[in-house]
Nucleic acid binder design. Structure first.
Lengths: 108, 108
DNA sequence: CAGAATCCAACACGATACTG
DNA sequence: CAGTATCGTGTTGGATTCTG
């Protein structure tokens, strides 16, 4: 990631959401914060990969990581304002995919 | 690609535009058709990779491949209607990236 | 010119085990 | 619970060469 200069805004954005599970993470966090284990089950990635992608999203300012000082450990991930705006920018693409990919697959 | 079931429209769409150079290809084709060599220079991918990604986009109905029966060979790639609609759905994301990634990098 | 073929490297991702 | 450590793998992309 972060290879070099971008050619346009889209490939810059793709760099942020390019990981295999990132859009799923964003989708899960859209309505409410999630704990690590919740995300793991809902998204389906392994611990290692999920942790890595969450860290990248955190570095990019998309998700916020809140640590509760408790035993047992408790960490909560949520969208930042930038993350919310990203999700909004993603909405038309999601609609496009729903109509032109999901629907087509369903139709056979 | 085409691993299994999708969770939402966004990851379905991501599957279509997920290749490393695909959004750059879409971006290049937005205003006018391009020949293979043109795309190679503008996008920056190697022949093999460019050909592979173009074929995937073709299979997905995003780009149209028109072969002119000439010597020397002449092939022209252009966006289908679906491709145009995809590019439109991508526009907000491009705007987001321009504002929140490109601008930030430029600012340091 | 537009690509196919071949070989190779990188890295993202996966599986499992372990820890504070 | 929320990760890290380690190792293994497979897809993706890159470099080069060849061809109709």
């Amino acid at each position: 990631m972060r290879p070099g200069a971008y050619h346009c805004g889209i490939d810059a954005a793709m760099d942020v959401i390019g990981g295999k599970w990132k859009v799923l993470i964003l989708w899960a966090l859209e309505d409410r914060p999630h704990r690590f284990g919740e995300l793991r089950r809902e998204v389906g990635a392994t611990e290692k990969v999920l942790a890595a992608q969450l860290r990248e999203l955190e570095v990019d300012g998309i998700v916020h990581r809140r640590v509760f000082d408790e035993v047992p450990p408790h960490v909560e991930y949520s969208l930042t304002e930038l993350g919310v705006s990203l999700n909004e920018a993603l909405a038309p693409l999601g609609e496009w995919g729903r109509r032109n990919v999901l629907a087509v697959k369903a139709a056979g």
